[in-house]
Amino acid sequence: MTERQDCASLLVQHLGWIERVAASLSRRNGLSGDEAEDFASWAKAKLVEDDYAVLRKFRGESALTTYLTVVLTMLYRDYRVAQWGRWRPSAAAKRRGPAAVRLETLVYRDGYRWRQAADLMHSRGETDLSEDELGKLLADLPAGSRGRPRQVGEAAMAAITDGADAEAGVHAAEAEQERQALGTALARAMQGLNDEDRAILRMRFWQGYSVADVARAMRLDQKPLYRRIDRLLSRLRTELEKAGISRERVRVLTDEDAA
């Protein structure tokens, strides 16, 4: 059997796994049914590309299924960037589960009004939550799109007021100053942690992974990880307070993160 046939055979044997991973990635990232199918087809084409280069690169240092899972995750990231620029689900949405991610995607990535998004999710059977519950869910998510700038029509432009009055400007400047001070203090406090602790906190709070997923990713026992995260948060609070960030602001920040 030639290497090419060998790789083709391997791909066919693992097709079921590949499709399950692609479907799971699509669910986690709020893709619609059509988008999920599109991604799965695109990813499979990438695996075949250049005479199965991805499979030929495999050295056998892990199980092939795990390797394929990581490869598909990398491919999903490339796909997302190609389709929607730097847009990605927020940590808050990820923490709240697939319905929150889908809702956020429809509203902030695709530009639907939230009632339209709710209708769409209901009509496609993507959630059992009521319209009110979806509204509350959306209110808990950070507002605004982090995606590629979209072209908007004149109507949308007209809706923007020029009312940046002086008071609002001052508040905005103060908020920005506080945000920068917090960012600097946080970066300094994080520098005091070792690599593993930093990675744990970033995954848990910046990226919104569950403790179970962080434990799985880092090969750590889940139970002690809860206590470890509590200790790290407590240490960060102390460092931030030492840096002059108000106790109230720190509490709000860390409570938000822990939610």
Binding site: T73, D195, A199, M203, Y209, D213
Partner: peptide
């Protein structure tokens, strides 16, 4: 881990792969 601690993209890939595997 030293590289991952500095890379949001790397952590995201690791986290998503772990979450998918767990699911």
């Amino acid at each position: 881990l030293a590289e991952l601690a500095r890379s949001d993209d790397g952590l995201e890939i690791l986290g998503d792969a772990a979450a998918v595997t767990r699911e």
